[in-house]
Design a binder for these strands. Structure first.
Ligand SMILES: [Zn+2]
Ligand SMILES: [Zn+2]
Ligand SMILES: [Zn+2]
Ligand SMILES: [Zn+2]
Lengths: 128, 128
DNA sequence: TCACAAAATGAAAATGATTATCATTTCCAA
DNA sequence: TTGGAAATGATAATCATTTTCATTTTGTGA
């Protein structure tokens, strides 16, 4: 099913589980703390390794906090963007139809090829 | 003229000058090396301080390399986005009319307030 | 010009995330 | 069962960035 269920090991699955439970974005350090708190003795190194492999397999999203720290989130397999609450971290996956068109148009206009893009919206959610 | 020409000191001006000369994005470490190579004995701490104040004053843009390292670029004072060449680093500032609208629409739809956004396009430029 | 406080500077140490090492343990197929 | 490959995690190493703090520069009023 998954892109590489073959290469998925116990740690990968643990990380997927904790990401499912927590929902939003979390850093490697935070995920490690959560697992530790729950009694899992997993090492920080392994957390980093698992996250890296999940990112490689496109099973989790990696983006950056404002201070540059990497944060991870389980994500669907279709291309999408995020609406993130700056206060509580709640995240909504949204479509970016307008963005896709914009990126393509701009790339063409300036003669760029092989283009990708990033687009995130952040603000304060209704609960906060 | 500028937002805070009053608070602009010698180091700020040096950094602006080197950013003008180099054109694209560069990290604090790179800018420091360039200045050193040119015979300027400026300290790394001062480079960081100057960049920080220039970012605060909206005189330079701060964004992140894929590995999270902060990179800086002199920029106009109007809100804009970037089209960056993954190969040579060349950057074009572009308007994001479509993005602005998209961000606003999505934020409203999900009840977010006080929203901002980021959007970058990256690819290979025509020269590369 | 002189004195002196505020601002600027930079060397060195501290911090904090991420990565590299490497010895040990767990898996698994032959 | 067994030998080697994969996985694990403690520890050390990296590396960008921030803090500290002592020194230097700058500006201003006497
Ligand atoms: Zn919220
Ligand atoms: Zn998109
Ligand atoms: Zn290029
Ligand atoms: Zn915009």
């Amino acid at each position: 099913m998954g892109i590489s269920t073959q290469t998925m090991n116990k740690s990968d699955i643990k990380l997927i589980a904790v990401l499912e439970r927590t929902g939003g974005f979390a850093s490697a350090q935070e995920l490690h703390q959560i697992l530790r708190r729950e009694g899992d003795g997993i090492g920080l190194t392994t957390v980093y390794r698992a996250l890296q492999s999940l990112v490689d397999d496109k099973i989790v999203d990696l983006l950056r906090r404002e201070d540059g720290e990497a944060i991870y989130r389980l994500c669907g397999d279709t291309h999408h963007h995020h609406l993130v609450c700056k206060s509580c971290g709640d995240t909504v996956e949204i479509e970016g139809g307008a963005i896709e068109k914009w990126a393509k148009t701009m790339a063409e206009e300036f003669g760029f090829r092989d283009v990708g893009h990033t687009a995130e919206i952040f603000g304060i959610c209704s609960k906060c």
